[in-house]
Design a protein around this nucleic acid. Structure first.
Lengths: 195, 195
DNA sequence: GGTGCCATGTAACGCGTTACATGATTAT
DNA sequence: ATAATCATGTAACGCGTTACATGGCACC
């Protein structure tokens, strides 16, 4: 969904061909080490967008090199882009992988939960360190956008690290708790009216 | 990937059938309002896990009701689970949707970036408010795990809100900057040796 | 008899990845 | 030559969603 709309946004700026879209996307998203879009995705996305009438193949250029299929936004495409930009962006799912992993470690008993927390702390610290270094090497006068992105990532990592400490302090309490057993719910009794 | 491994974790605790897995997963992950796994995903996941030898169909029970196909972990499945739990969890992609949206608003000129920031601030505040209320209604003695999850989400939202303020303060500077134009790169000249 | 829960699936599609395949141009 | 960049795709698969389909049981 994000890539699809990003393609629309870049075509709103000016018509482009697939290869160019890929490069432009990665430049905006913070470089290929951060968000690597595969060619296959770009071309299939363009095919679907054309099929859905959000984009048209404007022309095929060929100036000393391979042919370039140039796409442009349609009115429908412009509208779709505007809708997407106007919408609020839902805080990308609290489908939290690490939290679940910790819970599964507790119920399955397969690994030591304290080891899990320590491993994760190391991962986050390393990542934070890498991000901080990268930020220090980035010139805020020429690449302010990138610095802002790095700040966002760093702030999230710091929040997650604080959470790890908090959670470790409470871990013994969680272990003493019975974990939720949903199959204990009574059968066949409607429960809608209660809530 | 997460659901797949979560299924392994729940089967490590004890053999279960699909419907039961779904309920158990949602109980662990913080309720269906937070992470809703569709039946289709559970059953297709089980099929693939069985095909890959991580899980076997142990038996088919039928005690006064529909039949239940009960699955159990294999040794391979146990090993796969342990690998997953032992691995660090990569900080789920800095593929940040809102950041990209903001950049696209700037390059496409389709909407006012300040409006974007304000909309997002409202979204995050509302979400934070909802989470805080939910946390206040949750008994930390009976559902400590859920409280911890809510804390994590709240801490991230607070970090994102602080970032929004920071970014708004810098927005005029970003607007004055030329955005990266990757197609300005010279053609056909190798660039690996430079980096 | 209707509603709602228990329990199982299939089909079709979107998004994303990996691997494969082709062919032109340009720098060394 | 050969390596790298420019430029386009197809095929197969995994994950996830929506929609559809089936059937038994329990409660009112």
């Amino acid at each position: 969904m994000v890539v699809r709309n990003a393609v629309l946004g870049l075509l709103a700026q000016r018509p482009r061909h697939g290869y160019e879209l890929r490069a432009a996307f990665e430049a905006l998203a913070g470089g290929e080490e951060n968000w690597d879009v595969k060619p296959a995705q770009v071309y299939t996305t363009l095919t679907r967008l054309e099929r859905d009438g959000l984009v048209v193949e404007q022309s095929v250029e060929q100036d000393a090199g391979p042919e370039k299929r140039i796409y442009a936004l349609t009115a429908e495409g412009q509208a779709a882009l505007q809708d997407w930009l106007a919408e609020g962006t839902p805080p990308e799912h609290q489908r939290d992988e690490f939290y679940l992993k910790l819970m599964l470690a507790l119920v399955s008993g397969a690994v030591d939960p304290y080891r899990l927390l320590n491993t994760q702390r190391t991962v986050l610290y390393r990542e934070l360190h890498a991000i901080t270094n990268q930020r220090a090497r980035t010139d805020p006068n020429r690449e302010l956008a990138k610095v802002l992105l790095l700040n966002k990532v760093a702030m999230r990592l710091e929040a997650d690290l604080r959470w790890l400490d908090m959670t470790e302090a409470r871990l013994d309490e969680i272990r003493r708790q019975p974990l939720p057993e949903p199959e204990a719910r009574p059968r066949g009794r409607p429960r809608k009216g209660i809530e």
